[in-house]
Amino acid sequence: MCWECLFYNGENVSMIGISEISCYIPEKKESNYDLLEKFDTDEYFIKEKIGVEFRSRKESTEKASDLCIYAFEALKKIHDLDIEKIGCCVVVTQNPDYNIPHVSAIVHGKLELPEHCASFDISLGCSGYVYALSIVKAFMEANNIEKGLLFTSDPYSEILDSEDKNTAMIFGDAATVTLLETDANLQAIAFDFGSKGSGYKGLINEKKLYMNGRAVFNFTASKVPISIENLLTKVSLEKKDIKKWYFHQGSKYIVDTIKKRLELNTEDVIFDMYQYGNTISSSIPILLSQDLNDFKSGDKIVLSGFGVGLSWASAILEKN
């Protein structure tokens, strides 16, 4: 099968892939070591269980759109980008600047993107990046859009309860931008999605964020390995065919649990959230951005996001 192009409505349509990812992680950090006494815990728990030593924090005056702009500025430093050619601007967030309008409109305005550029938000949490890759790829291919920007920006610091151990030590602020283009050589070749809406109260923001850690753990440990197995079956691949695994960085404990249940090699499973925390939909693109230039032709990787909803999404990407 030709992954580079497909036949759509009688026309050859170039397939959309990832060409670049840039990130913004605030320099301001809060230390979990300052919370040892408050939450009656220890250094081992911080390093080996939750895997978060420091949580990145935006300034209180900054909004989701500001973080997107900072991520875009980072992109411009490494990629010569003509914004007149940007055909869509999409933001994954559940903590928008305002309820109305959508954050992508604000980002569109701040970046002075062209008026032919479509803008919309996607309301998803930790599964959002993988869902968005599929949505934006399909949208661009269906509408012959050659360049698009996919942002993730979900500043949980705005909704956290600082007295709640389950959440106060976990989440960090960050944003990413993924440049999607025709003929980019990192292509998604399969997706798997799922929802367990009956568990929506497991992670919910009424007045403050509430997380039933056990419910989220149970859902993740039971559903994500199945999603991965489904994904591999769809394209007749085996686990040994996958070079690296990029799971949502919910906590070290949950990534270790998935790794164990799938019997994956530790060195193939990326884990790195010690210095900034769980950044929701930004966690996967942050990790991916660090390895993007290291993949070789034929390498296949797996992404899997899971959380709010409860919701999960997994994808296999291949470097051409």
Partner: peptide, 26 residues
């Protein structure tokens, strides 16, 4: 055995014995 470990233990018991352990029983 910390709180995260205990979630893992309960999950393994639920899976091994095909039972459900509600939060209110913990």
């Amino acid at each position: 055995v910390d709180s995260l470990d205990f979630s893992g233990v309960l999950f393994n018991l639920e899976e091994a014995f095909n039972i459900e352990i509600p939060d209110e029983d913990i």
